[in-house]
Amino acid sequence: MLNSTIYPNFFILVGIPGLENKQKLISPFFFIFYIFTLFGNITLLVVFSASSGLHKPMFILLSILASNDILLGTSTAPKMLCIFWFNDRRISFDACLLQMFFIHSFTSIESGLLLAMAFDRYIAIYQPLRYGSTMTNNLIGKLVIMLLVRAAGLVGPILILFKRLPAFKTNIIEHSYCEHMAVLKLAAADIRINSAYGLFVAFSILGLDLLFILISYGMIFRAVFSLPFKESRLRALNTCTPHICVFLSFYVLAFFSFLSHRYGKRIPPYIHIILSDLYLLVPPMLNPLVYGMKTNQIREQFCKVLCKYQGTSLP
């Protein structure tokens, strides 16, 4: 325990409070989630790069999402597994802030990509004749730059505000990664500005993105149900199903993790921490599975790439 006048050089990550003696039993699930995240998203990237038929806006956005998912999972899972397997709980102050920056930046980019993909589906269904002229590679490039700038511009000040805190009551973080509020509660200072800014960032990114996604889908559903034939309606809805599954899994876990850490005082700590961990590990693992199983073009190209690889490897 640190004296409140001392600025910590490092923090101690507890892991999952209340389950310290059972973390090795839980760790295989986290390891499997991470391996599936790497394998699934790398497979998607290989299929996209090897298949010229998938060099289209929707699949370009999906390839960027896959890259972001790899980075998001890697920013948390290796350190978690070190805690669970080797009891390596120590993390330097600067490394903790860097992990915090990466986690919130990649989740910001993830949210923005889900919004961009909702816009892509909106144009494809609501204005199909303008799809080719609207969803161009140039537009996607600008969207990605905007998401990077938004992430750095909004998340960066969180680190600056942390550096301005004069002291910490303790260096023991009751979490398995450097979550913003979990670290902020350790400060021996007035944290109202930090907390308010954290709320502003969360709702200006996740809140606004979700609002615009819901608006997009309201217009999409209105266009779909105005189609004259049932087969056309089902086909149009089927193209949206993977994206709906993905953004629901991401936002439900995101808002539960965010709000419960501030207001869920009756929730046992270990439940909150496990769900916070799953929020960062499950959506990146599910995304390639959902899109791979629900998108015919991806399944077909995957089979072609696999058959081609097997054919070239035969003696």
Score class of each variant (00 low, 15 high):
Leu2Val: 14
Asn3Pro: 00
Leu13Gln: 11
Lys24Arg: 15
Phe30His: 03
Phe31His: 03
Thr37Lys: 00
Thr37Tyr: 03
Asn41Asp: 13
Thr43Gly: 10
Leu44Met: 14
Lys56Tyr: 04
Phe59Trp: 14
Ala66Val: 06
Ile70Phe: 13
Leu71Lys: 00
Leu72Gly: 01
Gly73Asn: 06
Lys79Trp: 08
Met80Cys: 06
Leu81Glu: 09
Cys82Arg: 10
Ile83Gly: 06
Phe86Asn: 13
Ser92Met: 05
Ile103Leu: 14
Ser111Thr: 13
Met117Thr: 04
Tyr122Gly: 00
Ala124Arg: 08
Tyr126Ala: 14
Arg130Glu: 15
Thr136Gly: 08
Asn137Trp: 01
Asn138Ile: 11
Val144Leu: 10
Met146Asn: 02
Val155Gly: 06
Ile158Cys: 12
Ile158Gln: 13
Lys163Glu: 12
Thr170Leu: 08
Ile173Tyr: 05
Glu174Asn: 15
Cys178Gln: 08
Met181Glu: 08
Ala188Phe: 09
Ile191Pro: 11
Ser195Leu: 13
Tyr197Ser: 01
Ala202Glu: 13
Leu206Ser: 13
Gly207Ile: 08
Leu210Asp: 04
Leu210Thr: 12
Leu214Gly: 02
Phe221Gly: 04
Lys230Glu: 15
Ser232Ile: 05
Leu234Met: 12
Arg235Ser: 15
Asn238Ile: 05
Thr239Asp: 12
Ile244Glu: 04
Val246Trp: 05
Val252His: 03
His261Met: 15
His261Glu: 14
Ile273Phe: 05
Tyr279Phe: 14
Val282Ser: 01
Pro283Arg: 01
Gly292Thr: 04
Ile298Arg: 00
Arg299Ala: 11
Lys304His: 10
Lys304Gln: 12
Cys307Arg: 14
Ser313Trp: 03
Ser313Glu: 06
